[in-house]
Structures are given as structure tokens and as C-alpha cells.
Write a protein that binds this DNA or RNA. Sequence first.
DNA 1: TATTGTTATACTCTATAACTATA
DNA 2: TATAGTTATAGAGTATAACAATA
Lengths: 170, 170
Amino acid sequence: MSATPATTIQNIPDLESRTVPEDHQDLRLWLRMLSCCNLVETEIRSRLRTEFETTLPRFDLMAQLLRAPAGMKMSELSRHMMVTNGNITGITDQLEKEGMVERVKVATDRRSSLIRLTAKGKRSFKKMAKSHEEWIRAMFGGLSETSRSALFDALAELKLLAQPQLSGRP
Amino acid sequence: MSATPATTIQNIPDLESRTVPEDHQDLRLWLRMLSCCNLVETEIRSRLRTEFETTLPRFDLMAQLLRAPAGMKMSELSRHMMVTNGNITGITDQLEKEGMVERVKVATDRRSSLIRLTAKGKRSFKKMAKSHEEWIRAMFGGLSETSRSALFDALAELKLLAQPQLSGRP
DNA sequence: TATTGTTATACTCTATAACTATA
DNA sequence: TATAGTTATAGAGTATAACAATA
């Protein structure tokens, strides 16, 4: 079980340090997950910045586009990335200025355009994605196969549980 | 195992949608964890804002202080919250202006002061913490006991693996 | 009327770096 | 010299809201 020892093995004080044994399991679990995620996320952000002069949202947007060779509408991107339309416009503007993506007018609806990676953007993203995957492997690679698959399944379960709780979903 | 079905059960497009079957397990695991965390975190931030007019970093700082009735030094807070000194100053300023925390001069070292919750801050935080715990329970409560403890242990393992990878740690 | 995308604005959080006052 | 904390600055990310063009 996960009673006592697992709780105290971390050696660096962080958000999880604020828990005490009386706290409820769910809360302790959440704080552990949060600090774990932040650990990885901070590292990824930092490396994207120093090694590729880019940011996580930009990387994410390009990742979405790589899966959609025909392009995606801004509103689609907005839904997938869970941020508002205006923000997508801003990120797209930056990437377009650098020649990574292009807006393509679509004939059937003159309000919208498709955003897609340029050849340059595709090359550039693939290089980043390769490094990105190595960073992830360096951090996750040591996980036992048991833990990996337990995490994978438990997170799927959690995701389904958490979604319906969302306030303000359309 | 977590081969095919678990991968496709989520019904809302998000960051994880960008994965394809060829992606490595570690990457898919990370994207699932990230979108899971974002789901919960976004919800918490939104509720803290609408119901208590506060933010996650402010909540976190107060949470740290509740565990330290004697107070904490800014540099301690900085370490625990993993942000730089200047940021702690800013958040502390806000909270002090609202009467939630106070700076207490310490005799032995005239450079530093201890930050601690005021009575008002303690009351206010406890109210928030109670709601916070309910939000968490609403999202995590449905987890099976197996998943909960699997997550808890697997995350502890991951945390230890990820920490040494950190670039730029003192 | 509703939707797509843009623009403008404001605010929080963050890192960096220069600074002060102590130690 | 080193440390504790402050200040100033700049940039990213976000939400909100008003807006134009089109459906």
C-alpha cells in the first residue's frame, strides 16, 4: 500500500510538502500529481526556450497541425488547446511571421481560413519533436512497466471523472 | 493492458488528441498526464477566481503558511513554491495589503522577516481549503481504490525519476 | 441571429538582473 | 564575499469584451 514510506521519499520541498497525514487521500494525490506535472512541464518549457527559442503553446499548436496535413480552423485549434479564440490568433500570428504556418483561405466559408504547417514549419517541428521525445524518455524511461501501465489506465479513468465536473462547458 | 480501448475513451478533443498510435508510450503517457492535470488545474483556478477572487499561487502560498504557524522566510517559500524571490515578494505584498499575511521582523537576522498568516488570513484560507477539498473530491472521488493507490505510488516513482533530470538546479 | 476570426485591454505569473542592507 | 529581500523590467499566457465580415 501507499501508506507511509512512499509519502516521504521525495527529497526536495515543493507543493506536496504542504500536505499533512490528516489530509484526505484525494487531496494528497492531487498535490502529488500537480507537483509531478509541474516538474516535467517546467523542464520542457525551459528546454524549449533555451534550445529552440519557442514556448509550449507554440509547440502544442504545431503538434496539432502536424496531425492535420490539410490544416485546421482556428476554432478547432481553440477547442483542442482549450484556450479562447483570441489567443490562437496571437500564437498563429507569431508563427506565421516566422514562416512556420500559413493561413489558407477556404472557398466554402469566407469567414474562416485553414491554418497549416509550411514545409519549413514541418521540418522545424520534427526536429523539436525528436528532442522533446528524448527529454520525456529521459524522465519517464525509468518507470517500471507496471507503473507505466497503471498510470496510463488510472489517468484515463481520472480524465473521464474530471471532465463532467467542468464548470462552464458549452 | 492499456493497449487500444483506454486510448480512445476520452470524448473531448484536447492535447492528447495529438498522439497517434506510433508515438512512444512515454510520450503518450506524458500527454495524458498533462491534459489530465490541466483539466483539474483549470477548474481549480477558475473556481478560486470566481468564488474567492484569488489565484492558485496565492492559495498555495497561504497553504504553505498554514503548515508553519511560526511563519516562513521568503527564501523558504521561494524554494517550496519553486519560483524566484522577487515573485514571492509580489504575492506577499498583495496578501499583506489585504490583511491575509504579515511580515514579522526577526531579531537574529535583520535582513529577513518571517511571513505568517494573520487570524483573518487563517479564517479565510480555511474556508477556501474546505471548498478546494470538495472540488478535488468531486473530481477524484470516483476513482477506484486500486487506481488511486496505483496512481499515488506510480507518481512517487516518477517524481524521483524526473527530479534528477532537472537542468539548472543549484 | 449565430458564427468566425480579429483587435484591444488588463491582469497574473514568471524570469532576469540590478540594487540595498545586512551578515 | 555571500545572503535576504526588494525593485524594475519585459515577456508569456490568459480572459473578457467589443467588433467586422460572413453565414
